[in-house]
Design a protein around this nucleic acid. Structure first.
Length: 952
RNA sequence: GCCCCCGUAGCCCAAUCGGCAGAGGCAGCGCUCUUAAAAAGCGCCGAGUGUGGGUUCGAGCCCCACCGGGGGCACCA
């Protein structure tokens, strides 16, 4: 926060006064640059593959595949929050390497994206130019952090050699279908063969040979996992593109830009992710992921088991209302039925006149049901979706004058229309069970409808809808059953009666895969003169983007719901029309003017990291097996060993990526059935920001704290807490931290701030603590004045060795469990012990200390290791191992409690028996004094560490 | 409204199985070095764990309720 001009080691004239070999920022910079150059020129972090261009000796080392979530190369530069996860994965990767593993760790760029395109729209600069320059800047910034990446594997999604395979995967998905019986995707050619042989009957029973070419194509198209459909999509005029459901917020706006989104029917590419709903849900169990992320995916997929139930409508021949319910167990509690106002059945069921004695509340004040219904429908049509789904509004609706029949008991149920039932959900009609559904309860209360409890609420239940579990009541043959049992029995009865069937529904919808954008992957298909899709052969990939003069899609007034998408590619006339010979001789085809969404490239990059320069295959099977195959035991799905990133990708990226990976698995291209085995959500580094009395942000670096107040140039400012960024004037960059202290200090500090998963505030003035530690360690090896190595060759004494081995033991466990904050603390503790001891530090302690520090602060560790007389990098030096003999204490402090309060302590051998310890404890002064005249009820002994005497 | 996560010293954070509340760092204070200041070094100071109950010989840890902070979902039938 407060930054004076006299930070350690920055000012030249200060440095003159310092010892020549003190570990200053200048010295750190020199060390860091030297080692970064050396790692690069020696290929220190190249990870060998078993086969292919990157093949090398993999020996029988265990594999560890570490990944960071794909960054978008932003032009605005990094702040200290960005590399938090990258440093963490690097520490883990470096530790794993020293622990003997072959470690695959690299970082590529998710480089298609809106910012570069928007910049192109504004300036006319090609997004590729912008993006490549941003990547170069980001690479340079990250290089200064000393990340142990394999640079040969750093790919970028805008690279034609990369998106060639994105397009190839698209075609595999296009040419696949989901075989429900096999529970997996298969090639479409197999479906065609089954139809042709008659093994699989066609939907209308005609022989395959009797179908026309177009009919056959349509049958196959209907099954494809990637398909073109006229579908209601989220059209966002303000952005000029359509959006996936996941990109639209709950209040019907674009996640990016916050523009209104409208439902439009448009022909677009869709991905049949719904075919995988069950597996995406069920396989979550097999993943080592944070529970909240699993929960979010479960909610998003939204599987619910229930039933479709048909309610016959009395007086209307052949009409029945089909509803979906998740609670068929409550059918006896249904007391009315509601149709959405737009429901097509409304016309048919509306009665000619009100029944005798109709409740006035039900009529909307109209003379006939038809008038009431028409008035209500007109009103509902005028309302926006947002208004209709607002949860605070009063329930409204009108009676249709008609009754439906409950199939369970033949009771008549009045049929209403009400806007709280939406045409877009389920069947657009519900059976209302007010006793067990809060919305239905509110409606029933207002309209004076009966409320019949069918689930026994717990004692003391206050009233209202009871949505919890309980025994079924008032339900004839279901009485006494649990919810699950009652559901099963009710469904069985419905099926017997022919009035319904058990059904599973999902909230998950198919994935809208077209975007009206320039800066994305073109679709590897063309359209013939009839507008039919023709996939391009592999030999024509990649389909590259044409040069255009205008990068913008046509955008409209954000509220112009009637506008139509117009993609930038539609203006590239020469690219659009293409003459190709696709087997029927040269013909003119038309290309697809849409591009793929940003998620496409990030759906499979883990596979390309494994085999980045394979020109023959998306990934070599042997290499994929080596790095990603299931390990056996608990691991039946395989995947990346550690995947670190923010929780914001919980649904979108992680769901799409799992889907693609499963398709590739089903089609036999990969052995793993999940992309990311272990997921870890890092916290964020946040920062304080300050506003003056006008509410304008002032530079946080110039704010000073005084007596609990925050002063900017003398005047009091208001403190806020939030994201780090330019607009809040509170950014701190890794570059400035590296300049002031060195990258090792920055790495160490970021890892020391707390557990990786926890968000924490950045505090610049605290960084110096990590710096001081490195200085003290440096001084334990190097004489500051002469630069000579000063360690002692005398073996360390027993006490120090015991401490060393305790630290080794703890640090190893900490690193393995990603507890880098406590690992760092233990290293400081050991170094402090060396310092406190005085005199030259013994080599047999210093060397393991340097090795243990290496994952956190690799440059200074390499430098010290070299000064200690070793040649070559320490990156592959075995990580120190604790000697179990030295972990056993000679004596243990035993706590002696009376009634749970500490009253005395004993020094005892760790091997002491319970009986011996009990005797010793009862004899202590503390116990005798505290106990006084009271007797002893019982004595709890936890040898050798604790005795608790319980007085009578 | 429902669901999930988190509350330990002025601040960031430790605390294996329920067993002495403190590993580490920042800040503060004192001292050493220094003409002085900074840097560096050495030392000191510090909470009874958000609140109220419960279980237990014993609770920061387990259970219940509440308060505060963060996140997700939301008329999903």
């Amino acid at each position: 926060m407060t930054q004076s001009s006299t930070q350690p080691g920055t000012t030249a004239d200060v440095e003159e006064a310092l010892p020549a070999f003190r570990y200053t920022a200048t010295l750190a910079a020199d060390i860091e640059r030297r080692w970064q150059d050396r790692w690069e020129s020696e290929g220190t972090f190249h990870a060998p593959n078993p086969v292919g261009p990157l093949a090398g000796p993999v020996d029988d080392r265990p594999r560890v595949f570490v990944m960071d979530m794909f960054p978008y190369p932003s032009g605005s530069g990094l702040h200290v929050g960005h590399p938090l996860g990258y440093i963490a994965t690097d520490v883990f990767g470096r530790f794993s390497r020293m622990a003997g593993a072959n470690v695959l760790h690299t970082l590529g760029y998710d480089a298609f994206g809106l910012p570069a395109e928007q910049y192109a729209v504004q300036t006319g600069q090609h997004p590729r130019v912008t993006t490549e320059s941003n990547i170069a800047t980001m690479r340079q910034q990250l290089r200064k952090l000393g990340l142990g990446h394999d640079p040969r594997r750093s790919i970028s999604t805008i690279d034609p050699d990369y998106y060639r395979w994105t397009q190839w995967i698209f075609l595999q998905i296009y040419n696949a279908w989901y075989d429900e019986d096999a529970g997996k995707a298969r090639r479409l050619s197999e479906l065609e063969a089954e139809y042709a042989s008659g093994q699989r009957p066609t939907p209308d029973g005609r022989a395959w040979s009797a179908l026309s070419g177009v009919e056959r194509a349509e049958l196959l198209d209907a099954k494809r996992l990637a398909y073109v459909a006229e579908a209601p999509v989220n059209w966002c005029p303000g952005l000029g593109t359509v959006l996936a459901n996941e990109e639209v917020t709950a209040d019907g706006r674009s996640e990016r830009g916050n523009f209104p989104v409208f439902k439009r029917n448009l022909r677009q590419w869709m991905m049949r992710i719904t075919a995988y709903a069950d597996r995406l849900l069920d396989d979550l169990e097999l993943l080592d992921w944070p529970e909240p992320v699993k929960l979010m995916q479960r909610n998003w997929i939204g599987r619910s088991h229930g039933a479709h139930v048909d309610f016959a409508v009395s007086g209307v021949e052949g009409a029945s209302v089909r509803v979906f319910t998740t609670r068929p167990d409550t059918l006896f509690g249904a007391t009315y039925v509601v149709l959405a106002p737009e429901h097509p059945l409304v016309e048919r069921v509306v009665a000619g006149a009100w029944p005798e004695g109709v409740d006035e509340r039900w009529t909307g004040g109209a003379g006939t049901p038809r008038e009431a219904v028409e008035a209500y429908r007109t009103r509902a049509a005028r309302e926006t979706e947002e208004e209709r789904t607002s949860d605070t509004r009063e329930k409204t609706g009108v009676f249709t004058g008609t009754y439906a029949v409950n199939p369970m008991n033949g009771k008549p149920l009045p049929v209403f229309i009400a806007d709280y039932v939406l045409m877009g959900y389920g069947t657009g009609a519900i059976m209302a069970v007010p006793a067990e559904d809060t919305r239905d309860y509110d409606f029933a209360e207002k309209f004076g409808l009966p409320i019949v409890r069918t689930v026994q609420p717990p004692e003391g239940f206050e009233g209202g809808a009871y949505t919890g579990d309980g025994a079924t009541i008032n339900s004839e043959f279901l009485n006494g059953l649990s919810r699950v049992e009652a559901k099963e029995r009710a469904i069985a009865r419905l099926e017997e009666l022919g009035s319904g069937s058990g059904t599973t529904t999902y909230k998950l919808r198919d994935w809208l895969f077209s975007r009206q954008r320039y800066w994305g992957e073109p679709f590897p298909v063309v359209y013939d003169e009839d507008g039919r899709v023709v996939p391009l052969p592999d030999s024509m990939l990649p389909v590259t983007l044409p040069e255009v003069s205008d990068y913008s899609p046509r955008t409209y007034d954000p509220d112009d719901a009637e506008s139509m998408p117009e993609a930038p590619l539609s203006r590239a006339a020469e690219w659009l029309e293409v003459e190709l010979d696709l087997g029927d001789g040269p013909k003119t085809y038309r290309r697809d003017t849409n591009t793929m969404p940003n998620w496409a490239g990030s759906c499979w990059y883990h596979l390309r990291y494994v085999d980045p320069v394979n020109t023959e295959q998306v990934v070599g099977p042997e290499n994929e097996r080596y790095w990603m195959a299931p390990r056996g035991g608990d691991d039946t799905v395989g995947g990346v060993d550690l995947y670190v990133g923010g929780v914001e990708h919980a649904v979108l990226h992680l769901l799409y990526s799992r889907f693609w990976h499963k398709v590739l698995h089903d089609l036999g291209y990969v052995s793993s059935s999940e992309p990311y085995h272990k997921l870890f959500n890092q916290g964020y580094i946040q920062a304080y920001a300050y506003t003056d009395e006008r509410g304008v942000y002032v530079p946080a670096a110039e704010v000073e704290e005084q007596d609990g107040k925050f002063l900017y140039h003398g005047s009091v400012v208001n403190r806020e807490y939030g994201k780090m960024g330019k607009s809040l004037k509170n950014s701190v960059t890794p570059d400035e931290m590296a300049e002031t202290y060195g990258a090792d200090t920055l790495r160490l500090y970021e890892m020391s701030m707390g557990p990786l998963e926890v968000s924490r505030p950045w505090e610049t003035r605290a960084v110096v603590g990590s710096f001081r530690f490195l200085q003290r360690l440096w001084r334990n090896v190097v004489d500051e004045a002469s630069g000579t190595t000063v360690v002692s060759e005398e073996p360390a004494d027993e006490e120090l060795r015991r401490l060393l081995h305790r630290v080794i033991d703890g640090v190893r466990a900490d690193y393995a469990a990603l507890r880098f904050n406590t690992a760092g603390a233990k290293l400081i503790e050991l170094n402090n012990a060396l310092t406190k001891r005085g005199g030259p530090a013994p080599r047999d302690v210093v060397e393991p200390l340097v090795l243990m520090l290496a994952p956190l602060a690799p440059h200074v560790a390499e430098e010290l290791w070299a000064r200690l007389g070793h040649e070559g990098t320490l990156a592959y030096e075995p990580f120190p191992e604790a000697d179990p003999a030295l972990l056993v204490e000679e004596t243990v402090t035993c706590v002696v409690q009376v009634a749970g309060k500490v009253r005395d302590r004993l020094e005892v051998p760790p091997s002491i028996t319970e009986d011996e310890l009990r005797e010793l404890a009862l004899a202590t002064e503390g116990v005798r004094r505290t106990l006084g005249e009271r007797g002893v009820r019982t004595v709890i002994v936890r040898a050798p560490k604790l005795v608790n005497v319980v007085p009578a």
